[in-house]
Write a protein that binds this DNA or RNA. Structure first.
Lengths: 208, 208
DNA sequence: AGCCGTATCAGCCAAATGGATGAGAGACCC
DNA sequence: GGGTCTCTCATCCATTTGGCTGATACGGCT
């Protein structure tokens, strides 16, 4: 079995060195480099062309994880990209998979799970932590509850605390239209007030 | 110089092993154990009586970091407790300091900063990351903007998406009183609508 | 005793929000 | 061509929320 070369991307030094220590115990896995930002990651992928990229989504400043995934895919090299992050946010999962991630692991995954994911990724198998998988599954099962692009846009502005009038101005639509969208959003989210919508939106969008 | 014994507490294995690797480079710092939960941490403090406890606030299930700090202090042993966490949430900082933390570091702190904080902690000096310090400072400078206990309670329920009526029922007060409290909260937070209050509250409470 | 902060409540009025319903335009699919 | 989805807008009406003013009560501090 040939060894798998891995690039680690995370803005936290401790996480990088922790992963390094963890992966170091596996003879078939070789961490060839680590990066603290998306820009650096891109550079290193070009240079070293590692087999697997393990990447956090939350990155301090600059390019975020999703964007980094997209760019790496754009290089049309053959890296398998594994998301390794703290939160199982609905939106992040979809966006990451969409951007071209091969797997999605949570940081509290067991070491064996992480090893398996890396080995699976190079073979084209996609692995995700159980909570992540169940969320994805739910998305597919309930297509009625998926927000349209316009609704998602509105919801995102809503969580900034804007009023209907402001939403309308920001999106160049009438207040009437804003209200229509909001009504749809509420019913899809299963709430009845804007306050509850904001609360569930922010929480679903990935912090817990 | 005698060596400093350290206990690491974090629910993420990678973070623990990362810190271990990092601290292992310092001859005067000795990581004697690590724990993945508050319960475990308490046990180990009793058993090993380490000089410094480095602790994450976010802990999966069970006891959270704040609670763990309080309990460790309750043992009236002499551990210096350092908070080591991802977010610089206003509320968390205050609560942690209040519970008896000696310092507050962010996970993207430079290694030297972490070393210095540990060394300082055993000598009774309290160290915090610059962003944390500035937030604390701001709290002290603007006592007008600190919510009263009742207001904080209300705000917390507000972020669940409750209406004024529901808030009143939940807190056994009239809707009129709810409105009074809300008006005060808005002015203290510098917002004008409940939506904005929820948005800033949830974000300030520690996710970014 | 007097002052201040906190918590409680009331009433009034303007503005924002939510619910129901209907409807037109463009895109896409079969 | 017909059906479905999405986005757009409108009207009407009930409810909720926000702004204002003022009031009582309790506790702590000086």
């Amino acid at each position: 079995m040939s060894t798998i070369s891995v690039l680690l991307v995370d803005d936290h030094l401790v996480v990088r060195s922790g992963l390094r220590a963890l992966l170091g115990t596996q003879p078939d896995i070789d961490v060839v480099a680590d990066a603290g930002s998306g820009e650096e990651a891109l550079e290193l992928v070009r240079e070293l062309s590692p087999g697997v990229v393990v990447m956090d989504l939350a990155m301090g400043d600059g390019m975020d994880g999703i964007e980094a995934i997209r760019r790496i895919r754009g290089l049309n090299s053959r890296q398998a990209i594994l998301v390794f992050t703290t939160y199982d946010s609905d939106a992040d999962i979809v966006r990451a998979v969409d951007a071209g991630a091969m797997g999605y692991l949570l940081k509290d995954a067991a070491p064996e799970e992480i090893f398996a994911a890396i080995r699976g990724a190079v073979q084209g198998r996609s692995v995700m932590s159980p909570p992540v998988a169940s969320r994805l599954f739910q998305q597919l099962r309930n297509p009625d509850e998926i927000l349209t692009p316009r609704e998602a846009e509105l919801l995102s502005l809503l969580t900034q605390g804007l009023s209907n009038r402001e939403l309308g101005q920001r999106l160049f639509i009438s207040e009437a239209t804003v209200k229509t969208h909001l009504a749809h959003i509420y019913s899809k989210l299963g709430v009845e007030t804007r306050a509850a919508a904001i609360a569930t939106a922010i929480r679903r969008e990935g912090m817990r």
